[in-house]
Design a protein around this nucleic acid. Sequence first.
DNA 1: CTGGGGACGGGGCCC
DNA 2: GGGGCCCCGTCCCCA
Length: 289
Amino acid sequence: MPRSFLVKTHSSHRVPNYGELETQREINGSCSACGGLVVPLLLPDSVAPPMPGDPAQPWDHISGITCISLPLPEAQRASEPLDPLDVSLMDPHAARAPSIPLKDSLNHLNLPPLLVLPTRWPPILGTDGDRAPDRLLRAEQAPYSPGGFQCPHCHKPYHTLSGLARHQQLHCHLQAQRCFTCKYCDKEYSSLGALKMHIRTHTLPCICTICGKAFSRPWLLQGHIRTHTGEKPYACSHCSRAFADRSNLRAHLQTHSDTKRYQCKSCAKTFSRMSLLSRHEESGCCPCP
DNA sequence: CTGGGGACGGGGCCC
DNA sequence: GGGGCCCCGTCCCCA
C-alpha cells in the first residue's frame, strides 16, 4: 500500500519539536500541579497587584512565580522525567514548602523566575509551522510599567501579567491559523518547509547540462538525464521491458495484472490507469456534470 | 476510442 | 534543513 500519499498525515499530528526548548533545559520541566511546561520568565522585581478587572487565577503570583502551562503530549511528559529540584522550584505547592524559601532557592541557583504556561494555551506555530517556544511570552516582549503590562503585539495595556497572558492566547490562536503563502503563485502551505519545497517548482534550480532544461528537484533531473543516456534501470519482472521511470514501470505492471483497479461507475468497465478511466468518462460514458 | 509508453510534477517520509 | 526517495497523479503522444 502507498506509504504516504493516500493517507496524509497532517503536521499537527506530529510530535511537536519541543527540543527547541533545550536552551533552557537546565531549569525546564513540567508543572506537577497542572502538567504544564515550565519556562523561565524574566519578571520584574515588583509585579503589579491584580486589578478589579483582572480575575484572580491560581497561577497568579505564587511566591513570585507566575504559573501558566503549555500543553505537552503525555509521552513527552513521561519521556522527560523531572528533576526533583526543578519540581520544587516550579511547583506552586512545593513552593509553599517551608524547607527552602523559593526566592532564596532562586537566588542561590541564580536562576530566573519561572513561567508555567496554561494547559489551555493553544498550539503555537513558529515560522516553520512547528510549535515554536520563541512565541512564548517573555518579559522583554511584555514591557512593564508602573501602570501594568503592555501587549507587544497590539500594545493593549493590562494591569497584571496573567491578564496579558490570557490576552496573548488570542494572538496565539491567530498564529495557529497562520499559513505560508508562495510569493509566486499565492499557494498556501501550513509549514515553511513545504513552502520552500514548493518554491523550487518556480525557481527550478536543477539544470540539465545537456539540453538546459530546468527541474525543481535533483532526482527529477536524474530521471530526465536518463532520457538522454537511454538508461532504464527499472526492469519488468514479467517481460523483457525496462523503464527509466519507476512510475512508468508501475503503470506497465498493471498491464500484466488480471485485475484493473479503476472501474467506470456507469458501465463497470475497468481500466488499468486512472487516466484511462478519466478519459473514458470524459468521452461520454458517464454523463456527470 | 482504447491501451500503453514516456516524461514529468508535487507532497510526504526517511535519513 | 536538505537530499534522496517514495508514491500517486497528470499530460502528451502514438499505435
